[in-house]
Simulated scan of single mutants.
Amino acid sequence: MQDPNTLCRRAVEYLEEYRDSQRHLRADGVGRSVGDVWKPPPNSIFKLNFDATVFVEAKRTRFGAIIRNDKGAVMAAMSTGGPPMSSSEEAELLAGRKAVEFATDVGFSELVIEGDNRNVMKALSSSLDDRSLLGNVVDDVRHLVYGMHWINFSCIRRGGNRVAHALVQHARNISEDVFWLEDSPPPALNALYQDSLLL
């Protein structure tokens, strides 16, 4: 048994050491604008972030998506492949479709859907007919979200979409699609940690 005063003093020292280390860790976030930071969705709503990359030299396209709750906890995530494409906008739009399809398959119906391509997010959130070459993909996404209870499309800068981007980078070297349910995906642990420091 130790003296209660000693235990109390040690507890205060540990708390101060913890706070000091947190201040040092937060230094990574200094200088970022608000649009560069992932923000949690409202209570009882989930946020779906997605991203895509065209790996021209490998002639492949890869998608990544993650669904988190209002506390930042991972509900579901995926790293998948897609067909070869020449345009990053086309890849982002197909990634959005794949991500929404994934979200509906795992049972989410109240979502903030967030991507980092302004044109894609504008097309998905518009109520006007899309007569572009990719209009059928936009229609597919609209059809998928039609049955949801609550939906909101939002555009974020790449810095706020770092977890989805990490999942895309992981997908670069996989031959089969990978899914995680209620488990933090190992390839995105660092990005998840960085987001948690800013919550």
Rank of each mutant, 00 (worst) to 15 (best):
Q2T: 09
P4H: 09
T6L: 10
L7D: 03
R9F: 06
R10D: 12
E13D: 14
E16S: 02
E17H: 04
Y18V: 07
R19H: 06
R19K: 07
R19M: 11
S21C: 03
L25T: 08
L25N: 14
A27W: 02
V30M: 12
G31E: 11
R32P: 13
R32M: 08
V34R: 04
V34H: 09
K39W: 01
K39Y: 00
P40M: 09
P42H: 08
P42W: 09
P42I: 11
S44D: 10
S44I: 13
L48N: 00
D51I: 11
V54L: 14
V54Y: 05
V56H: 03
V56A: 03
A58Q: 07
R62A: 02
G64V: 01
A65I: 03
N69W: 00
K71F: 04
K71T: 05
K71D: 03
A73Q: 11
M75Y: 13
A77T: 04
S79R: 09
T80N: 08
G81V: 04
G82T: 05
P84N: 12
P84S: 11
S86A: 02
E89M: 06
E89N: 06
E89W: 01
E90Q: 12
E90D: 13
E92Q: 06
E92M: 08
E92C: 01
G96P: 12
A99V: 12
V100S: 03
E101I: 01
F102E: 00
A103E: 00
A103I: 07
T104D: 04
T104N: 03
D105C: 15
F108Q: 15
S109C: 07
E114R: 06
G115N: 01
D116Y: 05
D116M: 02
N117Q: 11
N117L: 11
N117M: 07
R118I: 08
V120F: 00
M121I: 08
S126W: 15
D129T: 02
S132Y: 03
L133V: 05
L133A: 04
L134E: 06
L134K: 12
N136H: 15
V137P: 00
V137K: 02
D140I: 06
D140G: 04
R142P: 01
H143T: 14
L144S: 15
V145W: 00
V145F: 00
Y146M: 11
G147K: 14
M148R: 14
H149S: 10
H149T: 12
W150V: 05
N152S: 11
S154G: 15
S154K: 06
C155R: 09
I156R: 13
I156P: 09
R157E: 05
R157H: 09
R158Y: 04
R158V: 05
R158S: 13
G159V: 01
G159D: 03
G159K: 05
R162N: 07
A164V: 12
A166G: 10
A166S: 15
A166M: 05
A166H: 00
L167V: 14
L167S: 10
H170G: 03
A171R: 01
N173K: 14
N173G: 09
N173E: 07
I174E: 10
I174S: 04
S175G: 14
E176T: 13
F179Y: 13
W180I: 09
N190Y: 13
N190L: 08
N190S: 03
L192G: 03
L192M: 06
Y193V: 05
Q194S: 07
D195S: 13
D195E: 04
D195Q: 15
L198D: 02
